[in-house]
Nucleic acid binder design. Structure first.
Lengths: 184, 184
DNA sequence: GGAAATCTACTCGGATACCGCGTGTCCGAGTTATGGTGG
DNA sequence: CCACCATAACTCGGACACGCGGTATCCGAGTAGATTTCC
């Protein structure tokens, strides 16, 4: 985890819409246009969520994504790790080894164990991870549901269902099958 | 604060050397060469520490830096904020306002208060900041002093004092003052 | 001998290039529903 | 009426540019100390 990027923000917002999506399987494009953000960019995020086992993908014209687990079993930390990868908050450069007083060879007492500064950073990172792990998708969705008026959830469901039903329903060009050649 | 950069690591290491520097005022160059890192880069970090009131600078050939406060009054969080500036861990893009269901104008219930996702990130950041604020320069220095053998501290002091005494002591070119023109 | 003047080396401090990562976009491979076609 | 098949649109998934922030470097302004010179 480096610093929390906008990819993480998009990912969490998308997964929140999936919590109440019902039987619809919104595509990454549906979710992007529902939120007014770049469809290409959202499409780049979802493969990471799928590899981490947070969502499952369906192929084809009616395909899309749905949550792989109940929302109460998905923490914000899971999402952050899935999108940003295992990058630590702090990378120790082992400056302590290069002290000029050592004359080229660092003694064992200087290189043993974890660098004290590194240890502080690791504790801080662990505190942050603990805080992120305490919040689940279900909890976030509940908070949002309390703020929204009663009919909003079904409005969104209708919007998504309408998008899904419209896929491939209208063919721009009517089918013009080339007839088998009737003559010699 | 974004992600903890190597500037922060260099800064903390330098300040730790200053804790036990005694009366010597090491220059940024001294501290860099003591640790085997780029003097130019270290020289770029210290002005930030000075503006934040963590160190005081002395000009001139025997100039250098010393701590502005007792080391027990300088926390790791102070150093991180001084070097990285006030950047937050997470910048909310206010995606919630752009929901397509709203048709261009977001209702008040959607924009009021703090975004739920943003709130989670703020809590996580606060946990990290609390962890960083619990550790002081004095605490870190004590941990390191326990690891090092008895004579190490005075060895470093001698190294720094030697550097300081050598400054400007040997003139490469002896002074050749141009005499006032004696005759017209 | 004492004091002023001068010079040097060193310091801090900010302005300037290089590079990697994140953001954003595009295009190809694969799959499913569709609608016509023939038996 | 039913089974089959070719088509097309849509999906996912990865490969390709652009821009910004961090890393690293260099150079100028200013000052304290050391040396020299004069009274």
């Amino acid at each position: 985890m480096a610093h929390l990027t906008s990819s993480v923000e998009y990912g969490i917002h998308c997964l929140l819409w999936l919590v109440d999506a019902g039987d619809a399987q919104p595509s990454s494009r549906d979710l992007a246009e529902l939120q007014g953000v770049s469809p290409s960019f959202v499409a780049k995020i979802f493969p990471k969520l799928e590899k981490a086992g947070l969502v499952v993908a369906s192929q084809g014209v009616r395909g899309g994504y749905r949550l792989a687990r109940p929302p109460q079993d998905i923490t914000v930390l899971d999402i952050v790790d899935a999108i940003e990868g295992p990058k630590p908050l702090f990378e120790c450069l082992e400056v302590r080894r290069r002290c000029a007083v050592f004359d080229g060879e660092a003694p064992a007492w200087a290189t043993g164990g974890v660098c004290a500064i590194h240890a502080v950073m690791q504790r801080a990172e662990q505190s942050m991870r603990d805080a992120l792990a305490q919040e689940t998708l279900a909890g976030l969705a509940g908070t949002l549901a309390c703020k929204a008026p009663a009919g909003f959830g079904s409005d969104v469901q209708q919007w998504l269902s309408g998008r899904g039903a419209a896929r491939g329903a209208v063919r721009a060009v009517p089918m013009t099958r080339r007839r088998p050649d009737p003559s010699p």
